[in-house]
């Protein structure tokens, strides 16, 4: 555990809590892509199956449980509790275009051809693209509420901090997880355009981010 890894996990937790509280308090999921949230719940489900097979640390177990509970609770809020405010018309990204390639790649490129390892690889590749429906929805509606942009900022920052964590671990302990690093780079690159808009529009300009 190093400072980048801890900051990354905290940033990830902050992002998930920001989104959950936004929907819960505003009693609305307008502007939020339910598809992305389902994909994130799927990422955590397929990645954290080792909750039942190995105990790494209390921190590891607790964080996995928190991420799982909050992601499913968010999906519940969107599709059940506040489904009236769910904007299904603009949340039209074809997730099968993500799931099929990611599944295929997980079978091709993995560390071991075992169910747990393939599911872990699937979750790594899926996480890299899971935000696409949300980013697509923002380009379609042409705007995003400021709270949503803060959610996306911390979500994008978390994997960027993990990249720093992997650089640190490579130099201090020779650790190198090729699949996670390559996927993490791709994932962070997808946020670059958003980061630019976030800094230039949200932090400097008006609260709302409206795309050109």
């Amino acid at each position: 555990m190093n400072i980048f890894r801890l900051a990354g996990d905290v940033s990830h937790l902050v992002a998930i809590i920001i989104l959950f509280l936004k929907i819960w308090k505003s009693k609305s999921c307008a502007g939020i892509s339910g598809k992305s949230q389902v994909l994130f719940a799927l990422v955590f489900t397929s990645r954290y199956l080792d909750l039942f097979t190995v105990f790494i640390s209390a921190y590891n177990t607790i964080m996995k449980l928190v991420f799982l509970v909050l992601s499913y609770a968010t999906v519940y809020l969107i599709y059940m509790r506040f489904r009236g405010s769910y904007d299904s018309e603009n949340d039209s990204f074809r997730v099968e275009f993500l799931l099929v390639p990611v599944t295929g790649l997980a079978f091709l490129e993995n560390y071991a051809f075992t169910p747990l390892e393939i599911l872990w690889t699937f979750s790594i590749f899926l996480e890299a693209v899971a935000i696409m429906p949300q980013l697509f929805m923002i380009t379609k509606t042409g705007e995003a509420e400021s709270i949503t942009t803060h959610y996306l900022f911390f979500l994008g920052l978390y994997r960027a901090l993990y990249l720093a964590n992997w650089v640190w671990r490579y130099h201090t302990e020779g650790f190198f997880d090729q699949i996670a690093v390559v996927s993490g780079v791709v994932q962070t690159i997808f946020y670059c355009d958003f980061f630019y808009l976030y800094v230039t529009r949200v932090l400097r300009g008006s609260g709302k981010m409206s795309l050109p």
Partner: peptide, 10 residues
Amino acid sequence: HTGQCNKDEL
């Protein structure tokens, strides 16, 4: 591959 089967990260 540099298989890292120690999944200590989230």
